[in-house]
Amino acid sequence: MSEAPPKRDAVEAVTWPVRVAAAWTWRLLIIGVGLYYLAQAFLTIELVAFSFVLALFFTAVLHPLERRLRRILPGPPSIPAALALLIGLAVLAGIGWFVSWQITQHSTQLGDQVTAFVDKVKDWLQTGPLHLKSADLDKLSQQITDAVKNNKGTLISGAITTIRTVAEFLGALLLILLSTFFLLRDGEAIWQWTLRLFPRTAHARMDVAGRVGWRTLGGYMRGQVLIALFHGISVMIVLFVLRVPLAAALGVLIFLGSFIPLIGLTVTGSLSVAVALLEHGLTAALVVAIAIVVLIQLEAHLLQPFIMSRSVAVHPLAIALAVITGTTLAGIVGALLAVPLVAFLNSTVHALRETPPEPVGDADFPVKESPPPAEQRVEVEGSAAD
């Protein structure tokens, strides 16, 4: 009598690598879905979320100043926090006023240069390799004028949208100021409250990781200020040597644009090249362009490793991907926030991996001992009295 063939188990037939790949796949899918809904919730309160993140960045820059003021001015913590915030606002307001004043002083000269440049372009289109006729240029100008006239409703709705955007900007500015003040004044208490949102067993590790991430964020922001100052002063000196109008204002714009890696310096540098081209021609524009390229190389090979190496360890490819992703998702604001957020997450994850899951006696962070019960305290006090 022949034996029955052994039963085959389909689960046992699946190889171990395939099982591992399947386990990773469904877990990654769940994480991806969670991140998607988290991003949707973030976009729902986009204005509030971005305002609070910007407040965190301002706090990271102003925190050392607030600590020094707290040592100098004993008393309520509101005073040093308010003074640090006022100093930061004064610096930003001074920068804005200076740029506006420079543009106002040179607006007539720039207008004449733009008009002359348009005339040169028009003459080149007629006499250059394209050989466009004057009638074709007039027709093109008429089409642009008709497009503006036929889209007055669109322009008006755009103006209304601009007014709404200004109102949202003012609301966001107020939220940033309030958040920065309270973070400067009550930052430690807010952090302790945040820790209590997590399980008690995770408090120690979260505390270590959060503080490491905060130090990284502060180091990045302060290091970026130094790099931006170097860029702005260098370009301003080059523009002054070439006697380009708005040299100081363009230097300030270079300083502000340098806070957005890769993109900021390129955009503001292109503006400087355009102004140099309008004022002194192609040679001056080439000199400014070469200076900006040299600055980009200095930042990549000297400034970033020297200034940022102690606090930020992010690969240049990660920086490029973060900037492109942030720009795609949230425009200029996303590009501004992308790299510091990546640096914060990078240091936080490393700290979580390197911190032991349970605090031990010789750990790097303090371990609070639980107080003895009331009965033991009474016995101890009685024995002490004896």
Rank of each mutant, 00 (worst) to 15 (best):
A363M: 13
L155V: 12
A49P: 09
G326Q: 04
A330Q: 13
V367W: 10
P340G: 02
P371Q: 09
A135D: 14
F240R: 15
L132N: 01
T108G: 11
W16I: 05
G187C: 03
V360Y: 15
T25L: 12
G213I: 00
E379S: 13
L83Q: 06
T115A: 11
M236C: 08
G32L: 00
R68T: 03
A189N: 06
K133L: 05
E3Q: 14
A41G: 15
S2Q: 15
G223D: 07
I163G: 02
A330G: 13
A300C: 01
A90V: 11
V275Y: 09
G96A: 14
K152N: 06
D362W: 11
F198K: 07
L337H: 03
G382T: 07
V287C: 05
R310C: 03
V238Y: 02
F255C: 01
W124S: 08
A338D: 11
A49S: 15
S383D: 11
L178N: 09
G361S: 15
L195S: 04
F169W: 10
A276R: 00
T161A: 04
V349F: 14
S270P: 01
A147H: 08
L174V: 13
H231V: 00
L177V: 15
V294H: 05
F230V: 05
L69S: 05
S272C: 08
G213V: 00
A167C: 03
R200N: 12
G223T: 03
A167F: 09
T355Y: 10
L85I: 09
L132E: 01
K139D: 13
L265S: 09
A82I: 08
I79E: 07
A248R: 03
L302Y: 12
V33S: 00
H280D: 08
A4K: 12
I190R: 06
W26L: 08
F50Q: 09
G382C: 00
I254W: 00
L336S: 02
L282Y: 03
A202Y: 07
S134L: 11
Q143R: 13
T154N: 12
T325H: 11
T283F: 07
S370M: 12
K149D: 14
W24Y: 07
A300Q: 06
L177Y: 10
P80M: 02
F52D: 01
T44S: 14
V18N: 07
A21S: 10
V235A: 01
L217S: 02
T115C: 04
V293E: 07
I233Y: 07
V48I: 13
G94T: 04
R67C: 03
A335I: 01
V99Y: 06
V293Y: 03
P340H: 02
W124C: 01
